Computed example of a mutant assay.
Amino acid sequence: MADSIDVSVVIPTHSERRWASLCRTVASAQAQLVTPVEIIVVVDHNPELFERAKGEFAGVTVLENESAQGASGNRNTGAFHARSELIAFLDDDTVAHPTWLGHLAAPFSDPAVVGAGGLIVPAWADHRPSWLPDELLWTVGVSYAGMPTSIAEIRNVWSASMMIRREAFERVGGFRVGFGKLGDQNRPEDTELCLRISAETGGHWMYVPDSVIEHDVPLDRSTFRFFLRRCFAEGRGKVQMAGLLPRDQKLGAEQDYLRRTLPRAVARNIKAATLGRGGYHALRAVTVIAAVAAAGVGGGVEALAATRA
């Protein structure tokens, strides 16, 4: 891997409560084996946090969100500031392994590649809940069973670990402002961006498992209550996203996940439970069913709201 690369790393942040994790994220970006041309921290409408970051992060560009409040506008501010060929994104509660940036940039030797994403592993505050199956690890923001295990083309990646060509990002206007994470809303702004860029440019995305980050999973995100709320929000978000897509652009990946991946997870865990391999397997089978139900209710609520509107 080269010693440097024409890429800027954008790290959005919004709350003092994440100051310690933000410091770890910035330090991990600075410790990459290949050096980015710039590290950009963008603060989301929080003047006190902006002043603190500007005063304490030496050699880091610190900006205030120039767009509407929320993750989408915050990332856009940093990305539109960058002048590098490539733009990489990290969340402020992640730690990138030293080879993260170099591995993530590797697929861009192919001009047809517009973006890439890497493996996200959980950093549990306590321990992983025994009832949570591998196929549903996405509920805590990490990679899950069913994703590629080697470098491969993929429909979309996650903004917690994303790299994109600046030209493609600017061509579509970046993340869709007003559609993303804000408060208790959890909409898939990264998936929507990937689909929009692929449709506009004809390019494709790559998944690079050798590019690794660790994502914090605090105690309050390890509860069954949070899990159900997350699935409900995902159902609502996917219905909202579907309303933004062209009629001929279907959510095929989601349909395949529901028809193949999750039924296999139920069957596998029921079999393991009946063979006496641990009662937690029965809990995992029930969890999958609960996830589908919660997402279905969320999708139904959103569809009803859209009809009334």
Score class of each variant (00 low, 15 high):
residue 55 G to H: 11
residue 54 K to W: 11
residue 267 A to Y: 11
residue 266 V to A: 04
residue 258 L to Q: 13
residue 303 A to C: 04
residue 42 V to L: 13
residue 170 E to C: 12
residue 295 A to T: 00
residue 229 R to E: 15
residue 281 H to M: 06
residue 244 L to E: 15
residue 202 G to Q: 04
residue 163 M to S: 08
residue 232 F to Q: 01
residue 258 L to C: 08
residue 182 L to K: 10
residue 107 P to G: 12
residue 275 L to F: 05
residue 297 V to M: 09
residue 275 L to H: 08
residue 153 E to I: 02
residue 87 I to R: 02
residue 146 G to K: 07
residue 244 L to I: 10
residue 125 A to V: 07
residue 6 D to M: 11
residue 169 F to C: 04
residue 49 L to N: 03
residue 187 R to N: 07
residue 137 L to T: 06
residue 176 R to E: 13
residue 285 A to K: 05
residue 236 R to E: 15
residue 165 R to C: 03
residue 215 H to R: 07
residue 160 A to L: 06
residue 298 G to K: 02
residue 221 R to N: 06
residue 151 I to E: 14
residue 195 L to V: 11
residue 165 R to N: 05
residue 281 H to L: 09
residue 246 P to R: 14
residue 1 M to T: 07
residue 225 R to M: 03
residue 236 R to M: 15
residue 73 G to C: 08
residue 158 W to T: 12
residue 168 A to D: 15
residue 220 D to E: 14
residue 304 L to S: 12
residue 168 A to V: 10
residue 215 H to V: 07
residue 237 G to H: 00
residue 61 T to V: 15
residue 286 V to F: 15
residue 138 W to M: 12
residue 123 A to N: 14
residue 13 T to W: 03
residue 108 F to I: 04
residue 138 W to K: 02
residue 280 Y to F: 13
residue 309 A to R: 14
residue 187 R to E: 01
residue 257 Y to V: 01
residue 68 A to I: 06
residue 61 T to R: 15
residue 159 S to G: 12
residue 291 A to G: 05
residue 170 E to V: 13
residue 162 M to I: 02
residue 124 W to D: 05
residue 211 S to E: 09
residue 108 F to S: 00
residue 89 F to S: 12
residue 287 T to A: 13
residue 207 Y to D: 01
residue 20 A to M: 04
residue 288 V to R: 02
residue 263 P to E: 10
residue 295 A to H: 01
residue 229 R to K: 15
residue 153 E to D: 09
residue 23 C to L: 08
residue 37 V to Y: 03
residue 25 T to A: 12
residue 180 G to S: 05
residue 253 A to I: 10
residue 39 I to K: 05
residue 163 M to C: 10
residue 286 V to D: 01
residue 272 A to V: 03
residue 280 Y to I: 00
residue 179 F to T: 06
residue 254 E to H: 11
residue 235 G to F: 00
residue 17 R to M: 04
residue 13 T to K: 03
residue 299 G to M: 07
residue 208 V to M: 09
residue 212 V to W: 03
residue 4 S to R: 14
residue 55 G to W: 04
residue 223 T to Y: 07
residue 191 T to D: 10
residue 239 V to T: 11
residue 118 G to K: 01
residue 218 P to N: 08
residue 6 D to C: 09
residue 254 E to A: 06
